[in-house]
Amino acid sequence: MSINLTLRTSADSNVVALIERLELGENSGQEPVAIPQPPNRTPVRTREQSLALPAVMGTVRGWSRKEGFLGSVVLASRDHNRITVYSQFEPDTGDDAQPALRVLDSIDALGIPARTLDRRTYDLMWRDGNEALTAVSPLHTPVVHFGLFTVLDDQADALLEKVEATAPASLVTPGLRTINFHRSHDRQRVINFGTWSTFEHFHVLHEQPGFTTGEKYWQGLATFENDYFDVIGVIGKNATAGEELLG
């Protein structure tokens, strides 16, 4: 099974996204440092990730029976001790569902130290790609890139204008299938959910206009961090154990 994430403008997508990003392990008291680029070619799977992922999958599978649920992608960071869950809902259910839909609770129940890095609801603002739709599955898009923008001085709209003008240049990168930009409801975050078949040629991205050293298109508009993930599972509406693809 795979789910199709049809990411158009917020006016006609009829979808909101809930993104929960978790850091596992003991809290050192220091914020995670932005990871180097390009991503590690060999994923690093921590003990905490391996223990927590089955519980996370089970929790999200339970969401699939809720009204308004459209699908979730469970992601494990290949550079950090992190798990992220990206979920889509019909617009009338996204914000209301937030208090009840927390994967952190399932990890806490296992006694694994964990904390929430970020948890917000997003509108799907703009997409482009080498494919007409954004289809996510462990076979089609085994790796996903999050471009994490923390917006400066209410510059979300200005950042999205820059995105539309500059981001399509990234699509010449071998392995990059689609780019999908989301703006949080509080307008403090923009996330690019980038789908990839492979990260092997990620370095080509940094040779494109707007992405080279000293020429980042988001300068003055946002601070930026990458995170690189393996797609662990995709869960569609009314899923049962064994139906979804697992990485």
Rank of each mutant, 00 (worst) to 15 (best):
I19V: 14
S13P: 00
S137M: 03
T46A: 06
V85A: 04
V190G: 00
K237Y: 09
L24V: 11
H182S: 03
M1H: 10
L104S: 14
L171Y: 00
E215F: 09
P209Y: 06
F224S: 01
V16S: 08
G71V: 12
S72A: 15
L221C: 05
E164I: 02
V56L: 08
H185L: 14
V56P: 04
V103A: 08
R65C: 02
S106L: 07
R21K: 13
E164C: 04
L221E: 06
Q88R: 14
A11G: 03
E20V: 09
S10Q: 10
V151W: 01
L124N: 08
N180W: 01
S106F: 10
P32V: 05
V204G: 00
F199Y: 05
T173A: 07
A52D: 05
L51W: 13
R8I: 11
N192P: 02
N81I: 04
A169N: 15
L124V: 12
F149C: 01
G111S: 10
I112H: 11
Q208P: 03
D12V: 09
S10V: 11
V190L: 12
H80K: 15
M125R: 14
F181M: 06
T150G: 02
F211A: 03
L70K: 15
I3P: 00
D154K: 09
I83S: 03
S184F: 02
T213K: 14
F146G: 00
N180A: 01
L139S: 15
I83Y: 04
Q98N: 06
L117G: 01
R21I: 07
D157K: 13
K216C: 02
G58H: 10
F146P: 00
V144H: 13
G58A: 10
L148P: 00
V234Y: 12
V60W: 03
R41H: 10
D154C: 02
V15C: 06
K237N: 09
V143Q: 12
F211M: 02
E161Y: 05
I107D: 01
Q188I: 00
V73E: 12
A158G: 03
L221V: 03
A109Q: 14
E200M: 04
M57L: 15
T46K: 07
F229W: 08
W63K: 01
G210M: 11
E20K: 11
E244T: 09
L117Q: 09
H182L: 15
T213Y: 13
H206F: 15
T195I: 08
V56F: 08
V172M: 03
L221H: 07
L171E: 00
P99Y: 06
T134Q: 02
S72D: 05
Y122H: 02
R41A: 14
A114V: 11
L246C: 09
A165N: 10
H145G: 14
V73D: 04
D95N: 08
E244A: 15
T195W: 12
T46Q: 09
I35Q: 13
G220N: 06
E48K: 12
G129W: 06
L5Q: 13
N192I: 00
A158W: 02
V56M: 08
V204Q: 10
Y86R: 06
V56C: 07
P209S: 04
V44C: 04
M57V: 14
L160R: 09
I19C: 05
V144D: 07
F69W: 03
R115F: 06
Q49K: 09
D123F: 12
Y228E: 02
E161H: 07
R183V: 15
